[in-house]
Computed example of a mutant assay.
Amino acid sequence: MTVIMGSMRWVTFDCFGTLVDWRHGIGTSAELIAPGQGARLLEAYNRHEHLVQAESPTMRYRHVLAETLRRACEEEKVDLGADDADVLATTLPYWPVFPDVRAELTALREAGWRLALLTNCDRDLIAGTRRRLPVPFEAVVTAEDAGAYKPADAHFELFRSSYEPEVWVHVAQSYFHDMEPAHRLGLRRVWINRHGLRPSDPSIVPHTQPDLRGLLAAVEATA
């Protein structure tokens, strides 16, 4: 975790699902080992990952990926080869960045906002993804740093104690992993509802938009 001292204006992001097309990455990677089963395995994977993380909050993310894929395959009655469980960690650095990321994050930087990632990932894996992100980030807090996975508070608390943000807006796609803890901690927040989901409590997400377009205005209005 890189540390930059001083109170500043920060926008923190979840990475996978918000900036990187997580669903595409999981689905297409599953197709490599089980052709024609990618969509089914993606949905099963999504049902199991947070359970694996809650059971083993200090498990390295590459092992979370493998164990969750095993459970998804078991649920869907898909044979998983002994050497295939690592496919998600292997392909993760190549998962595509959403096309709206470059322009919107560039606009934030040009307006004087510092950018950080709060990611349910490990240092080695996020390093591969950062090479594909089109703008630099001044700080990264990983699950490896925090010793826990969101929606636990650890990422947010570690970021706050390390960087002492004067103004802080959190932007993320996951209602469960990000918006709920950000609300619980009283953070300013913008929900990127890329999949048109209905929140169980709309008051948790006072500012919602379908993608990153116009994010600078949303962040500054929220701040």
Results as ranks from 00 to 15, higher is better:
His207Arg: 11
Asn193Ser: 04
Ile33Trp: 01
Asn120Ile: 09
Glu180Arg: 15
Val169Cys: 08
Tyr149His: 00
Ala221His: 11
Thr90Pro: 06
Leu19Met: 09
Thr129Met: 13
Glu76Phe: 04
Ala218Lys: 14
Ile126Gln: 03
Ala44Cys: 09
Val140Phe: 00
Pro134Lys: 14
Arg109Tyr: 07
Thr222Val: 10
Arg71Ile: 09
Leu92His: 11
Pro134Met: 15
Tyr45Ala: 03
Leu117Thr: 02
Ser174Met: 08
Arg123Lys: 11
Leu108Arg: 04
Arg132Leu: 13
Ala223Gln: 15
His50Arg: 15
Thr129Tyr: 03
Ala116Phe: 06
Glu166Lys: 14
Pro181Thr: 04
His48Pro: 14
Leu197Trp: 04
Ala111Thr: 12
Arg109Cys: 07
Phe159Arg: 07
Arg198Lys: 14
Thr58Asn: 05
Met1Val: 12
Asp100Lys: 12
Val11Glu: 01
Pro151Arg: 08
Met179His: 06
Leu88Val: 09
Glu180Lys: 15
Gly186Ile: 07
Trp168Val: 10
Tyr163Gln: 05
Ser174Gln: 12
Glu180Ile: 15
Leu115Ser: 03
Pro57Met: 14
Ala30Ile: 07
Thr58Ile: 09
Val11Gln: 08
Met8Trp: 11
Val171Pro: 14
Leu185Phe: 05
Thr119Gly: 02
Arg9Asp: 03
Gly81Trp: 00
Ser7Gln: 14
Ala116Lys: 15
Arg198Ile: 12
Ala39Gln: 09
Arg9Val: 05
Leu215Ile: 03
Pro199Met: 02
Gly214Gln: 12
Glu104Asp: 02
Asp122His: 03
Val167Cys: 11
Gln209Leu: 12
Asp201Leu: 10
Asp145His: 10
His177Phe: 12
Val190Cys: 12
Ala217Asn: 08
Ser29Met: 01
Val140Ser: 01
Ala143Ser: 15
Trp95Glu: 03
His207Gly: 02
Trp22Phe: 06
Thr12Asp: 04
Val219Arg: 11
Glu43Asp: 03
Arg213Ile: 07
Leu187Trp: 14
Leu105Glu: 01
Leu41Gln: 02
Met1Gly: 06
Lys77Val: 07
Thr142Ala: 02
Val190Glu: 10
Gly128Lys: 11
Arg160Pro: 01
Asp211Phe: 04
Ala34Asp: 00
Pro181Glu: 02
Phe16Glu: 01
Pro165Val: 08
Pro99Lys: 09
Thr106Met: 11
Ala152Tyr: 13
Glu110Ile: 05
Ala72Asn: 00
His48Tyr: 15
Asp83Glu: 01
Arg62Val: 07
Phe16Cys: 04
Trp22Thr: 01
Leu158Glu: 00
Pro57His: 10
Ser200Phe: 09
Leu105Asp: 00
Val64Thr: 12
Leu185Tyr: 06
Met8Thr: 09
Glu67Trp: 02
Val205Thr: 15
Thr142Leu: 05
Thr129Ile: 13
Leu32Tyr: 00
Glu75Cys: 07
Leu41Asp: 00
Asp145Lys: 08
Ala66Ser: 13
Ala148Asp: 01
Arg70Asn: 07
Ala152Gln: 15
Thr68Val: 03
Thr106Arg: 14
Arg114Lys: 15
Gly196Arg: 13
Val11Pro: 07
Arg130Ser: 07
Pro206His: 06
Arg188His: 13
Arg70Glu: 10
